[in-house]
Computed example of a mutant assay.
Amino acid sequence: MNLPPRLAQSLGYAGLLPFLGFAVGVWALQGYVQALCMQGFLVYSLAILCFLAGSLWGSAPRYAESARTPRLLVSNGVVIFAVLGFLTAQPLIASLLLMLGHLAQLWYELNTLPRGGWYRTLRTRLTLVAVIAHLVYAAALVQLNP
């Protein structure tokens, strides 16, 4: 990975702000703005999963043929899973499926990236905060519709 660590960290942490903002918005807001936060969270989660899957796809040519095929299949599988989760049109189910997609993406990356290093640590932190945001979002939905 030839990405400057400080830039990647800044962009990664900034990318958590919509997750956190939308999740808090579901708790704190009402009416139309709350509905926008509910939908925005799911769309943003889907977009980030597609972005992450695209990074797997884009890095595949740098791998040996034996590792390239699984990388391409996982990248496509994550996107298909995420879109199908989103299409359930059930926000609680969709959020939990998207959260599983984020965890699956991280699991694959941790099992294919070299041990140690700043990028591995960053991806783990970012995913864990995103997962927490998904849990906050899901809790808000349960609170709204007991």
Rank of each mutant, 00 (worst) to 15 (best):
A64W: 00
P91F: 02
V83C: 13
L97D: 11
R62E: 08
A64R: 08
R71E: 14
A47Y: 07
R68V: 11
I48H: 00
L42V: 14
L106T: 12
P70V: 12
L100I: 12
R71Y: 10
S59K: 00
R68E: 07
I48M: 02
L52F: 00
A94N: 06
L42Y: 13
R62P: 05
L46N: 05
F81K: 09
L72C: 14
I80G: 03
S45E: 08
A64C: 02
G85R: 01
R62D: 08
L106G: 09
A60N: 03
G58Y: 01
Y44V: 09
L52C: 07
Y63P: 01
L98M: 04
I93S: 02
P70G: 08
I93T: 12
V43T: 11
L98T: 12
A64K: 06
A47P: 13
A89Q: 07
S55Y: 00
L56G: 04
G77K: 09
I48D: 01
Q90H: 08
A64D: 10
G85T: 11
W57V: 15
H102K: 03
A82R: 04
T69I: 09
A104R: 01
S95E: 01
F86N: 05
S45T: 14
A104W: 02
H102L: 09
L92C: 03
L97Y: 05
L98R: 02
A94Q: 04
F81S: 10
A53F: 01
P61H: 03
L87Q: 04
Y44I: 10
L97R: 03
L96F: 04
F51G: 10
A67P: 11
L73V: 15
V78M: 09
L87D: 05
L103V: 15
P61F: 03
A82Y: 01
Y63F: 11
R68G: 10
A104T: 12
R62H: 10
L96G: 09
L87I: 03
T69L: 07
L84R: 05
N76K: 08
L72V: 15
I48C: 01
G77L: 11
Y44S: 05
V74A: 13
P61W: 02
W57F: 14
S75D: 11
N76R: 10
F51L: 07
Q105G: 09
G85Y: 06
L100E: 05
R71G: 11
G54L: 01
L52D: 03
C50P: 08
L73F: 15
L72E: 13
C50W: 08
L73K: 13
F51A: 05
L52T: 10
R68H: 05
F81W: 14
I93N: 00
F81I: 06
P91Y: 02
V83A: 13
L100G: 13
Q90K: 07
Q90C: 07
L97M: 14
L103R: 11
T88S: 10
L84F: 12
G77W: 00
V83I: 15
G54M: 01
I48G: 02
M99H: 10
H102I: 03
G58Q: 01
L72I: 15
L42M: 10
Y63D: 02
C50I: 14
V78P: 08
S66Y: 00
A82S: 14
L96R: 12
A64Y: 01
A89S: 06
A60H: 06
R62F: 10
